[in-house]
């Protein structure tokens, strides 16, 4: 097995996990991973030597997910009611009932919060890595992380928005 195969295949379990977190569906998640691997193979020699392979692959997968969502929303002629509610910023009441599956709750979050919760909380990327992958300052990563967590608490129906006061 070639060097590239070995290096890429070592990342597949984590890529599948991230893709499932984003898409909520096993089959769709693997389509996404397959696309990601195809891209990575075709651009193997363009990747930054000595760069972080894992971060590179996750960034490719995320870009693919985002561009597919965009194509999807341009194409979409009908939208489920729950999605309309969710995009208005109000948590989907269904999700509150369906707390057995945390992915349903996560899916109510905007992609940028969803990705950060997955990349930090599940994939253990550093805040600095995530800032680079998303192309935003680290402070933005922290505030999206905070907002994402708060939103998850609201959706899961247990939390009050508690604000931490600055101690002078």
């Amino acid at each position: 097995m070639s060097d590239m195969s070995t290096l890429l295949e070592q990342q597949i379990p984590a890529l599948r996990r991230y893709a499932l977190g984003l898409s909520r569906d096993d089959h769709t998640a693997d389509d996404l991973v397959q696309d990601c691997l195809e891209r990575a193979i075709s651009r193997w020699f363009l990747r930054r030597q000595g760069g972080d392979l894992r971060a590179w692959l996750f960034a490719i997968l995320r870009n693919l997910y985002i561009s597919s969502c965009r194509t999807q929303s341009r194409r979409a002629t009908s939208m489920a009611i729950e999605e309309i509610i969710a995009s208005d910023g109000y948590p989907d009441p269904e999700a509150r009932l369906e707390t057995r599956d945390i992915l349903v709750a996560l899916d109510q979050l905007p992609e940028e919060q969803k990705s950060i919760l997955l990349l930090v909380g599940v994939e253990d990327f550093t805040y600095e890595d995530v800032a680079r992958m998303l192309g935003v300052p680290i402070g933005t990563v922290m505030s999206r992380l905070s907002r994402g967590r708060q939103r998850l608490r609201t959706i899961l129906g247990t939390g009050q928005p508690t604000l931490i006061r600055r101690v002078k």
Partner: peptide, 27 residues
């Protein structure tokens, strides 16, 4: 696309995407 994928070092920013369900175009 290579530029887009490699460009995260350079600080590419995506506009926020609403949480529509993801369906691949081939599907």
């Amino acid at each position: 696309l290579a530029g887009a994928a490699g460009g995260w070092f350079a600080g590419s920013v995506h506009p926020p995407v609403s949480p529509t369900s993801f369906i691949p175009r081939t599907a």
